[in-house]
């Protein structure tokens, strides 16, 4: 295909992505190096019958005017990145020198918002992804062994948790684990503790969020693996059987190698999706117990005073994390591409 024709065909898509994905990233980077102008402080001299006094006051009008004239604010360099809300080097060093045990240091680190967000996000990503793959594979095997006539309805029901909106799906679950909901009461009954509430306990909240995460994305893994199982080479399978392979060996040496590339695919998509975990934390009103990088940005953007610059710094750090997370895939693709 000629260059010109190619450009013609991709132009609408390319323009949309440059204008609304590349530029916002640049805008975020620029914003992250700025901070809002400080309040304009004036020294006012009040002269009365008993002499003059000098007082300092905030000039609201001038502050407002300055902030409106330069909405981007003033250049502060890396300040946004190293303040308490982000990488917090000073606080980290302080926690290190003032803590006697690892546990104490850890508690202090987890009180820093950025670190607690990144710890939750990574824990969520690396626990939910493998469990999703395992559950999805199990469902695929189970559906594959069911009678052909009922497979359609089985797939229909299995797709529900994935297709339904994440906000809605997690709300439904959240209402059920409410202390007055059916699952919440079941948990209280099992634990024999009538005051137990998922909302009130951090570990329970983390577990619920991860259970939701697995429940939500298992259908995706299931569908991919199910499609893969349909294409397992039956000749190889039979040949293995003639050679005396038992059921387990056939699964281990015929099915699993066939499924392996799909596992990589599902893992990649799941890593990307789980890393931006966002909606369930909102539905579960989990901010007191768990904060992900995405909800941390949201809370800066929707708070009493909108903290654009803080949100921008978190965004840049998040994008860098995504890059690190994707780098093995990118390096591999690059190598494959070079070789091809």
């Amino acid at each position: 295909m000629r260059h010109k024709t190619f450009l013609l065909f991709v132009a609408p898509s390319l323009i949309a992505m440059i204008a609304l994905i590349v530029f916002p990233v640049i805008s975020v980077v620029i914003q992250s190096f700025h901070a809002q102008h400080e309040q304009v402080i004036e020294v006012v001299e009040n002269c009365g019958p008993f002499g003059c006094t000098q007082t300092t006051a905030v000039n609201q009008e001038a502050t407002q005017a300055l902030r409106e004239a330069e909405p981007l604010g003033r250049w502060v360099g890396m300040d946004n990145y190293i303040n308490r809300g982000h990488l917090a080097f000073a606080e980290l060093a302080d926690a290190w020198s003032s803590s006697d045990t690892w546990g104490e240091w850890w508690t202090k680190v987890m009180n820093l918002p950025f670190y607690s967000a990144i710890v939750f996000t990574l824990t969520f990503t690396f626990i939910v992804t493998p469990l999703t793959i395992a559950l999805g594979f199990a469902i695929a095997v189970a559906v594959n062994s069911a009678a052909k006539a009922i497979r359609g309805p089985l797939i229909f029901v299995s797709l529900l948790p994935f297709i339904i909106n994440p906000i809605v799906g997690s709300l439904v679950l959240f209402w059920m684990v409410d202390a007055r909901g059916i699952l919440g009461q079941a948990i209280q009954w099992l634990a024999d503790d009538p005051d137990l509430s998922v909302k009130a306990s951090t570990p329970m909240m983390w577990i619920m969020l991860m259970v939701y995460g697995i429940w939500h994305s298992a259908p995706f893994a299931f569908v991919v693996f199910y499609a893969g199982l349909q294409t397992v080479n039956q000749d190889t399978n039979e040949a293995a059987m003639i050679d005396g392979a038992n059921r387990w060996q056939r699964v281990r040496y015929v099915t699993i190698p066939h499924i392996m590339p799909l596992v990589t695919f599902v893992a990649l998509i799941q890593l990307m999706d789980n890393f931006r975990v966002f909606e369930p934390l909102i539905s579960f009103s989990a901010e007191a117990h768990a904060q992900s990088l995405s909800t941390y940005i949201l809370s800066d953007l929707t708070g009493e005073t909108v903290l654009f610059n803080s949100a921008a710094a978190t965004s840049v750090l998040t994008v860098i994390c995504v890059g690190i997370l994707l780098s093995p895939v990118l390096v591999r693709t690059w190598r494959d591409f070079k070789r091809a």
Binding site: S294, I297, A311, V319
Partner: peptide, 8 residues
């Protein structure tokens, strides 16, 4: 990239 980073 998480959409919220673009939104900011």
């Amino acid at each position: 990239m998480p959409p919220i980073t673009l939104v900011s």
